[in-house]
Amino acid sequence: MAKIKVGIAGATGYTALEVARLLMSHPGAEVVAATSRAEDGKSLAEIHPSLAGRCDVPIETLDPKTIADKCDVVMCCLPHGASAETVHALVQHDVRVIDFSADFRLSSLETYEKWYGVKHPWPQRIGNVVYGMPEFFADEIAKADVVANPGCYPTSAIMPLSPLVQAGLIETDDIIIDSKSGVSGAGRSAKVATLYCETNESISAYSVGNHRHGPEIDDLVHRIAGKSIKSLFTPHLTPMDRGILSTIYVRHRGHTAAEMIQCWRDQYANSVFVNAVDHLPATKHVAGTNYVQMTARDCGERTVLVCAIDNLAKGASGAAIQNMNVMFGLPEATGLA
């Protein structure tokens, strides 16, 4: 069987590096094209020295038709706004796209434009692009031309919350999500807040009450569970390279933590990467992998849910490879286990 030919648009960032790294060990796919406006003429290995000797694909300026002609699927690792324009152009040339930005994740155009502050370049597709969580949307992903790759923080909240909301085990209007992320979640471009001297030996909250991933969490839990929720989401920056740990405080409806863990085990019984565990998850338990670990603890009127993922893997590039596998009829864990 011929290998899936993969292009990477926006090849300079951490998610692009992680896609390339994962594809190095994927038996059914290979990187054949990469684009960057700033690094035209170099190779992927020059931009990402850890790929030296393994992935010397040349970087070129993005021309949708040229890339589409080379590829079966394009991983679009561009920022919001710019990504939607590129996705639109690529789809016109008959290539499938997995979009890493938030441009197609939300159900509502109004919500997108409110939280992202831009006019959407392809508004007709808002609410008409499948969300890239095979655990819930595999059938739609398999035949999709565009897949909206999930946000990293949202993944760590949607996966534990959705089954519990759907089963009616928790209250839906009083959910507190406290999430902590490694610095790679802020991207590779230079910013004062992510300089070594700012982040080392420090932890800080940011975007309190107004982070863009809050609406994504509420929207997706509603779409999956069929019930609206109200959550308060607060992200924190921690001095580690990668990983997300979300601690979620919910009010139970007379159900124990053990019942919630069993609910997860029933829901994810056929899911390769989701593990409901008895121990307290930590980011090192899932570092560099596409796995999710989550557990629950009884705490009086509340239950505390704890979920750990790798923000660059299950929170971004690993999820994209998992989606690609579903799109092209391969086992979900191909190249990821």
Results as ranks from 00 to 15, higher is better:
200 N>K: 12
31 V>C: 05
300 G>P: 11
143 K>G: 07
279 H>N: 09
179 S>N: 04
50 S>Q: 10
217 I>Y: 07
161 L>Q: 11
3 K>G: 04
219 D>A: 08
61 T>Q: 11
147 V>F: 06
330 L>P: 00
287 A>R: 08
154 P>S: 08
197 C>R: 12
182 G>P: 03
301 E>W: 00
319 A>W: 01
55 C>W: 01
165 V>G: 08
185 G>D: 04
320 A>F: 06
335 G>R: 04
195 L>H: 08
255 H>D: 06
237 L>C: 02
289 T>E: 04
237 L>W: 04
89 A>W: 00
264 W>Y: 08
210 N>Q: 13
278 D>C: 02
144 A>T: 13
160 P>R: 06
36 S>W: 03
66 T>Q: 14
9 A>M: 09
62 L>G: 00
305 L>P: 02
225 A>H: 09
117 G>I: 05
169 L>Y: 14
83 S>H: 05
7 G>E: 06
297 R>L: 13
128 N>L: 02
155 T>E: 00
61 T>M: 12
288 G>R: 03
202 S>A: 13
143 K>T: 15
195 L>Y: 01
252 H>R: 13
144 A>K: 11
221 V>D: 10
330 L>T: 01
20 A>M: 03
319 A>P: 00
297 R>Q: 14
122 W>N: 12
76 C>S: 15
238 T>W: 02
1 M>T: 10
139 D>H: 11
109 L>R: 11
255 H>Y: 12
282 A>Y: 00
71 C>V: 09
318 G>Q: 08
113 E>L: 09
182 G>I: 08
129 V>T: 15
228 S>N: 13
26 H>Q: 04
178 D>N: 15
90 L>C: 12
207 S>Q: 13
323 N>I: 00
134 P>W: 11
72 D>L: 07
139 D>P: 01
291 Y>E: 11
107 S>A: 15
98 I>Q: 04
19 V>L: 11
274 V>Y: 10
5 K>Q: 13
328 F>D: 06
160 P>E: 06
89 A>P: 01
275 N>Q: 14
232 L>G: 02
104 F>C: 05
205 A>V: 07
160 P>A: 03
202 S>V: 00
82 A>Q: 12
112 Y>I: 07
174 D>C: 11
300 G>W: 12
96 R>K: 15
312 L>N: 09
72 D>I: 08
252 H>M: 05
292 V>W: 05
181 S>C: 11
99 D>C: 09
131 Y>D: 04
153 Y>L: 14
259 E>H: 07
45 A>N: 02
227 K>A: 13
75 M>L: 12
331 P>S: 10
332 E>M: 03
161 L>I: 10
34 A>G: 02
4 I>C: 08
5 K>C: 05
206 Y>E: 01
55 C>D: 01
253 R>S: 07
8 I>C: 00
69 D>E: 15
126 I>Y: 07
151 G>Y: 04
296 A>M: 07
207 S>G: 02
54 R>V: 02
